[in-house]
Design a protein around this nucleic acid. Structure first.
Lengths: 218, 218
DNA sequence: ACCTGAACACCGTTCAAGT
DNA sequence: ACCTGAACACCGTTCAAGT
């Protein structure tokens, strides 16, 4: 093997980038630092991502948005089948399919919460994303929604999951200043100050409420 | 007036920064460029934000998170009263208060969507934020929710609004690659391909569904 | 094809200095 | 107190060169 083949690949670059993001935050992801982590000169990365950092960001978003990678193997069948599996009719009821998807998606987003800012202005038009949309549409159709309401319901579901993760990440972050003082102007907040919030439970409850509201016949 | 007083203030700096973000995106907000826009040397900004850009970002988040600034004057009473107004008992029913808040908040977020990435890891512990929480808690309490469920319901509402904006911004953005081909694997997506989505209407419908689901007695 | 190394323009921030 | 101007370390990216 000649000296200048470090075995670099888009996949390896993306996963290493994600490790840096998870470890020290998005703003510390530097081409040079990424190069160091890959035991390579920073400029070598441009050979696999000719359009530079922006393209790398796109690849990271697509990586995260792949529900196949997201799903913890639910029935421990074959943990290595990403992309090549046969559809194999899904027997779970529609609401369970949506709930499972939501929990899996939430889990990846939480695991890579440092990459969330990248996901705002980037739309991953991948097969994996399409597969998620198909799951949503099929489930809401099965739930009895009229066709013209299905995309909206799917949008609401996606909005809720994404927003819940952002909400949680924000709640867990340190305040940027000393908190404003809780005085008489905020009686209800004061009264409920000690209610503990379990993010997992709150997420599940909100999800149930949303699904119930979306599929209730009017 | 001596030569070196450019009338700089945190407020002026923040609004100018927001103008740059709205105009050419977050990554083009540069201390030097911000200085130019303010007719000042970049380093002058550090006199008002000694902790640098991170602190400036925090101020921007707090600015955006102020619902008083967000609300379009609903009854055209006094458009200039931010911060000094008397509570003045709110007579709208609880669900209308929540809906109004949601629409106002969504409007600011959409107007400054370029600043969304800043809002993910920063929690604004301001009086304005507290006022919003008070509104949520009071409304859900009035709706009949038991105290231990109120904070969760408020979290779900906040999650939905934030997520809906991100969803919309993403949907309106240009795809980062050529879209994956829509083939036989995605029958429902194909069938519903031509359903038009009106973001305003979808948002309102999802909001109604969520509020109904959250406050339905079980 | 795949990677290196020098170079360039630009960035955030520090610091000493001006008024 | 408020702002300037030079300086430093670091960044993304280009380009010519190596194998």
């Amino acid at each position: 093997m000649s000296r200048n083949n470090a075995g670099l690949s888009p996949e390896r670059i993306v996963t290493e980038a994600l490790r840096i993001i998870d470890g020290m935050g998005l703003r510390n992801l530097t081409m040079r630092r990424l190069g160091d982590a890959l035991k390579v000169e920073a400029m070598a990365i441009y050979h696999h991502f000719p359009l530079g950092k922006e393209q790398l960001f796109g690849a990271i978003v697509e990586y995260i948005s792949d529900p196949a990678r997201a799903a913890a193997p639910r029935d421990a069948a074959d943990p290595e089948d990403s992309g090549a599996e046969e559809p194999e009719a899904d027997t779970r009821p529609w609401d369970q399919r949506l709930r499972d998807w939501a929990h899996d998606y939430r889990a990846v987003l939480l695991r890579h919460s440092g990459a969330l800012p990248l996901m705002i202005h980037r739309r991953p038009d991948t097969v994996a994303a399409l597969r998620a949309t198909e799951l949503h549409y099929a489930a809401f159709t099965e739930a009895g929604l009229p066709p013209e309401e299905v995309p909206g319901a799917a949008a609401a579901l996606d909005s809720y999951v994404l927003g819940a993760v952002v909400h949680q990440v924000r709640a867990e972050g340190l305040p940027s200043r000393e908190p404003a003082v809780l005085d008489g102007r905020f009686p209800t907040v004061t009264a409920l100050r000690d209610v503990e919030v379990d993010h997992d439970r709150v997420f599940a409850a909100g999800l149930d409420a949303l699904l119930a509201g979306l599929t209730a016949r009017r």
